[in-house]
Design a protein around this nucleic acid. Structure first.
Length: 625
RNA sequence: GGGCUCAUAGCUCAGCAUGGAUAGAGUGUUGGACUUCUAAUCCAAUGGUCAAGGGAUCGAAGCCCUUUGGGCCCA
């Protein structure tokens, strides 16, 4: 049971009262109050003012008087506020017991939003020619948290990672290896993906400006890779697999796992485009232009002021959108599945099986399609994604294909300067080609160094492995939290120096409160499972219980709005409530042992709730910090 | 030129979907609290014409329109 029960009770009674007053269909809201206005507030008086020709204050009085006579168990008092709000004071003796007992259940915070529906979440999808940079991390963490939220709310989730192994960026590094003599092995101590991105890619593309003939070579290589049979194509495949393996290590280290890897090269070779194209023609969603600038092309008509989008050029070659459309249709299960599936050769942490598509042996069949698809891609791709979503809505019901967009991560002026670019105080867009980015692994490494130092300083008694374990949890937590604590439509300006700040609204703050709670439980030898919750009456205690009870409401909100930050804020607010409690209320060593039991019970409830909430964010909970 | 998006405290952001009470955090600055369940903590002070203008409303940070400025996409 959560705080929702009292909201439900109030809503039910207000509806009944409205029925008595013969005012139906009033869209009033019942919500948790802001502080100092009781526990639950209702705005119904404002909405009725016109209809009843009375002031909101007056109506609030009428409603509160009527409410007293209703059957109610969780409300102890109703107050008509002079502003017009009707405020309700909870009967905390009852509500506390419900919330605290509920919090120990695995079902706590659970709402059945999915009804078992299968949802595809695609994220990461980084070109396999470089290491992940800090911008990719935002994508990955958003996608991962969304997956966790959907799982929590009874969706079956298939997490996909799309590997663009036949694009220009891959062709670029192949040119580097084959035409500029880059060694296939990275320098000592450097990961292969870093080497490909930092050295091969940057230095190869830098040569394009001075040598136009390279463009022809680029096209040739791209064709060979798409075709897939030549020696070059096989070489490229080996390279991309190696980069991919390194990229996955980074993701896994951050606590992110997948169900299936989809290779673009295979989508091209599978013939999915052909069947999709025929289907589009049949449904008259694509048209052939005889005249005009797109003469000889197959196009999708643009809406309103949007230009037509070319799908197949007059030369007969498909444009890059033509790769995305069949893939989107495949994800929705609209096409026959041409793929077989094999298990990826490295094991994911946590034991979840990772599959990958194959065309070589299609005996093993799986299904990774879903009735809803959420594609996490930054909002620069919004135009293209809208076209795809629009097309898919013609096949499936509206809203089956969702583009979850988010703003990019840019570099602060100071950080750009460190990387060798003077931006005169302005933030800078990252660029793989220019080598202007910060790798995810290096951010993690500096966080790890910093947090290990801090942990060792606090706990001289700990051995190195324990220190490193805690430092790992804190570093990953910090990185993840920074990526989701703000709204998706806010640009994150990444600053190397500031990223190492571990105070204030950060993951370590929240994890630290968890460790404090753990410490109390560790030191307490008293049994608390059947403690009397009605003894908890301090403001700080009730506030903490209230926050615990809000968990389910946050989960629901975050899932419906696909908004990870809601959970981040919840975790923070819950931690604040605990710290307040911790400062003001003593738990251990009380003369009144029954009260002590109750408080220990509350601490345990907080601890388990915070753990569940942090789990949704993929943030671990160290027992000590 | 067209489209999308953002603008709230010195800085970074909540709140806006579904209008209503006193606009909240963190950070910064200044001061205070560790012989007490962990100070990665807490407390206090400081700091806001919610970009500007208009509109509808009894009532706007929130809704509508216009403008300005930033970012992105397309050309």
């Amino acid at each position: 049971m959560s705080f929702q029960v009292i909201l439900d009770e109030v809503e039910k009674n207000i509806t009944k009262i409205l029925g008595d007053l013969q005012c139906n269909d009033v869209a009033f809201s019942v919500s948790p109050s802001k502080s100092d206005f009781g526990d639950v507030s209702c705005n119904v008086s404002f909405l009725l003012a016109k209809q009843l020709k009375k002031s909101p204050q007056n109506i609030a009085q009428i409603i509160s008087a009527k409410y007293e006579k209703c059957e109610h168990t969780l409300v102890s008092a109703v107050k008509a506020h002079e502003s017009g709000y009707v405020n309700f004071i909870a009967d905390w003796k009852k509500l506390s017991t419900l919330i605290l007992l509920g919090s120990f259940s695995d079902e706590f915070g659970y709402t059945d939003l999915g009804k078992g529906m299968t949802v595809v979440v695609e994220h990461t999808s980084v070109n396999p020619n470089k290491a992940l940079h800090i911008g990719h991390v935002r994508n990955i963490i958003i996608g991962d948290v969304i997956s966790r939220l959907l799982q929590k709310t009874n969706h079956k989730v298939n997490v996909l990672n799309y590997i663009d192994d036949s694009g220009l960026q891959v062709a670029d590094i192949i040119i580097g290896f084959r035409h500029f003599g880059f060694s296939e092995d990275p320098p000592e101590g450097k990961k292969f993906d870093h080497y490909c991105g930092d050295d091969v890619y940057v230095k190869t593309t830098a040569k394009y400006d001075g040598d136009p003939s390279l463009q022809d070579i680029r096209k040739e290589i791209l064709c060979e890779i798409e075709d897939g049979t030549s020696e070059i194509a096989q070489f490229a495949s080996r390279i991309t697999q190696r980069v991919l393996a390194n990229q996955l290590e980074t993701c896994w280290n951050l606590g992110v796992t997948y169900d299936c890897l989809n290779f673009e090269s295979q989508i091209i070779r599978s013939g999915l485009w052909g069947t999709t194209f025929e289907k589009l023609k049949k449904m008259k969603l694509v048209e052939y232009d005889d005249v005009g600038e797109n003469s000889g092309c197959w196009v999708i008509r643009g809406h309103d002021n949007d230009k037509d989008k070319v799908l197949v050029r007059s030369t007969g070659t498909a444009t890059y959108i033509a790769k995305d459309i069949p893939y989107a249709a495949w994800k929705l299960g609209l096409l026959g599945d041409p793929f077989g599936y094999i298990i990826y050769d490295k094991k994911q942490p946590g034991g979840k099986t990772l599959w990958q598509t194959t065309l070589d042996d299609i005996s093993e069949k799986c299904s990774f399609a879903g009735s809803k698809v959420i594609t996490v891609i930054d909002s620069r791709q919004a135009r293209l994604q809208n076209i795809i979503a629009d097309l898919m809505s013609k096949f499936e019901s509206e809203g089956a294909y969702v583009h979850l967009g988010y703003e990019s991560v840019t570099l602060s002026s100071d950080t750009a300067k460190i990387l060798g670019l003077n931006t005169e105080g302005k933030q800078a867009q990252m660029s793989g080609r220019k080598g202007l980015y910060v790798n995810a692994d290096s951010v993690y490494d500096s966080l790890l160094t910093r947090t290990a130092e801090e942990t060792a300083r606090r706990h001289p008694e700990m051995d190195v492995s324990e220190v490193n374990q805690i430092a790992h949890y804190v570093s990953v937590g910090t990185l993840r939290y920074e990526m989701i604590k703000q709204d998706l439509d806010k640009i994150i300006t990444f600053d190397l120096a500031k990223s190492l700040n571990l105070e204030g609204d950060t993951a370590p703050y929240i994890q630290y409160t968890y460790a404090r709670a753990s410490r109390i439980l560790e030191k307490s030898s008293r049994p608390y499972s059947d403690a009397d919750c009605t003894l908890l009456s301090e403001q700080a205690e009730l506030q903490l219980i209230r926050m615990i009870g809000m968990f389910g409401i946050s989960v629901r909100d975050a899932t419906i709005n696909l908004s990870p930050k809601v959970i981040a804020r919840y975790c923070h607010d819950l931690a604040v409530a605990f710290n307040e409690f911790y400062e003001k209320v003593r738990v251990l060593g009380l003369d009144d042992t029954t009260l002590e039991d109750s408080r220990v019970h509350l601490v345990a409830s907080f601890k388990t709730t915070l753990k569940m909430a942090l789990d949704l964010l993929g943030i671990s909970t160290p027992e000590k910090m």
